[in-house]
């Protein structure tokens, strides 16, 4: 497979994408966003999907996260084919196994940081007190111990994204999907966010899949998948990346 298994041999595959096509119909016109992509993501790795806008990067990302169904092909997450689950099971899978981080943070504006982080746990059926306790721990871990009861509009962009990171880890997911997590942040804050994300995920063995065009993300990625025109152009291992970054930067 295109995934290549030299560095990750022996590690279980957590996401398996097979011959995925996604075709959008706009009126009579058919737009091919993904033209047959295969990819294996291994448990615990940090993988970045790179590509210019319109390359199919976001579409692939959404497929992996079970946010969208493929027109053809299969996406298996933790050995389960997403499109074969019913709606409740999909919601349940998203709740327990996948954490999401968005470019625009997407915190619930009426909730405090603590409540935002606790919400996915409440969806999972964890009692309120327990959820709040764990949410506070997670927020302390991202350095927001003194901002537990602040609402999103009282937090800076970087702080909001840190709340979002804590929220993504709330239900101890296997996978975290980060869609342009640094897209709305300045260079320094972006670096800090990437650092926190990769530290937390390494510590917990969580797989991170990130769609981005931020080259800062390359340094922490185990592998980088380059997408162009709806196809995987190439996949690079970290050890080959340094040279590449130099030539780009």
């Amino acid at each position: 497979m295109q995934g290549g298994d030299s560095p990750s041999a022996g590690r279980p595959v957590i996401v398996s994408v097979r011959n995925v096509k996604r075709i959008f119909s706009i009126g009579d016109e058919k737009v091919v966003a993904l033209g047959g992509v295969s990819l294996d993501v291994y448990a615990g790795e940090y993988i970045s999907i790179m590509g210019p806008s319109g390359s199919g990067k976001s579409t692939l990302f959404n497929m992996i996260g079970g946010l969208d169904d493929p027109t053809e092909g299969t996406v298996m997450v933790s050995g389960v084919e997403m499109s074969k689950l019913n709606r409740r099971q999909q919601a349940r899978l998203r709740c327990l196994k996948i954490g999401y981080i968005f470019q625009t943070y997407n915190l619930i504006p009426v909730f405090t940081a603590l409540q935002n982080v606790a919400l996915p746990m409440l969806f999972a059926g964890i009692p309120v007190e327990e959820a709040n306790e764990k949410a506070a721990d997670l927020l302390r871990e991202v350095g927001l111990g003194d901002r537990l009861h602040h609402r999103p509009d009282e937090l800076s962009g970087g702080q909001q994204q840190r709340v979002a990171i804590a929220r993504a880890f709330a239900n101890d997911p296997n996978i975290i999907l980060a869609d342009e997590p640094t897209g709305n942040l300045d260079l320094k804050t972006g670096e800090e966010i990437i650092g926190r994300l990769s530290n937390l995920s390494r510590k917990r063995g969580v797989t991170i899949i990130s769609a981005t065009h931020d080259h800062k993300m390359l340094a922490v990625s185990d592998r980088v998948v380059w997408i162009r025109g709806g196809m995987i152009e190439r996949i690079e291992e970290r050890k080959n990346l340094n040279i590449k970054v130099g030539s780009i930067g």
């Binding site: 279980p12 595959v13 957590i14 398996s16 298996m76 933790s78 050995g79 389960v80 084919e81 074969k84 689950l85 409740r88 099971q89 349940r92 899978l93 709740c95 327990l96 196994k97 969806f123 999972a124 059926g125």
Partner: peptide, 25 residues
């Protein structure tokens, strides 16, 4: 699903299906 996962040595599918079966409160 389970067949597929066992091929990949995950064995996680049945695990997840079990958890998914436990409907949220």
């Amino acid at each position: 699903c389970e067949e597929d996962s066992s091929k990949r040595g995950g064995g996680a599918a049945s695990d997840i299906m079990l958890q998914l079966g436990d409907m949220s409160r």
